[in-house]
Simulated assay, not measured.
Amino acid sequence: MPKQTEKRARGRPASIDKTEILEAATQAFWRLGYDGASLGELTKATGVSRPTLYAAFGDKDALFDAALDHYAKTTGAAPAHAFAEATDIRAAVTAFLTVSAEGNTKIDAPSGCLIACCAALTAETTPLLKTKLQKQTQELTAFLSARFAREVARGALSERPTPEARAVLLGDFMRAQAVRARSGASRAEVLSELSTRVEAVLA
Rank of each mutant, 00 (worst) to 15 (best):
E85F: 11
A149H: 08
E139M: 13
L63C: 08
L39A: 12
F148P: 02
G112C: 01
A80W: 08
T105P: 06
A203F: 00
G47W: 09
T131E: 12
S158Y: 07
R12K: 14
L129H: 02
R160P: 00
V99F: 03
A77Y: 13
L63K: 00
P110G: 04
D108N: 12
Q138T: 14
A78G: 01
L128I: 14
G40C: 09
L53P: 02
Q134Y: 08
T196L: 11
R90D: 08
S100I: 00
Q138G: 13
K130Y: 09
G103F: 02
R12S: 04
L140Q: 14
L53E: 05
A55E: 09
R10W: 13
E23F: 15
A101Q: 04
C113Q: 02
A156V: 08
R197T: 03
G112L: 02
V179A: 12
E193Q: 13
V179H: 14
R197D: 02
R150F: 13
L114H: 05
S100A: 15
L114G: 06
V168L: 09
W30P: 05
H81A: 11
R166H: 01
A146G: 01
E164Y: 09
A200K: 10
A178Q: 02
T74M: 10
T105N: 09
S100E: 09
T137V: 09
T131F: 15
K3N: 13
A101N: 03
A95V: 01
G171V: 07
G33P: 07
H70V: 04
G76L: 06
Q4I: 11
T141F: 07
A72R: 10
G103Q: 09
M174C: 11
A55S: 11
K132C: 04
L42R: 05
D17V: 07
A165K: 04
Q134E: 15
A165F: 07
L191I: 07
L42I: 01
T131C: 12
R166Q: 04
S111L: 13
S15L: 12
S158M: 09
P79Y: 04
R154M: 10
T94Y: 10
C113K: 05
A72Q: 10
T141H: 15
S183Q: 15
G171C: 04
A203V: 05
V168F: 07
L114V: 02
A167S: 06
T74Y: 06
G155V: 07
S195D: 15
E159A: 13
A123D: 07
A153I: 05
M1L: 11
I107C: 08
D108F: 03
T43D: 01
V168W: 00
A66S: 11
A203G: 11
S186W: 12
D17Y: 03
R10Q: 12
V190R: 04
I21M: 03
L144K: 05
I89H: 04
T74F: 06
L202W: 10
G103E: 06
R8M: 11
G58R: 06
Q134N: 13
L32D: 11
E151V: 07
L133F: 08
L194F: 07
R8K: 12
E199S: 11
S158P: 01
A78T: 06
V179W: 15
R180M: 14
A24C: 02
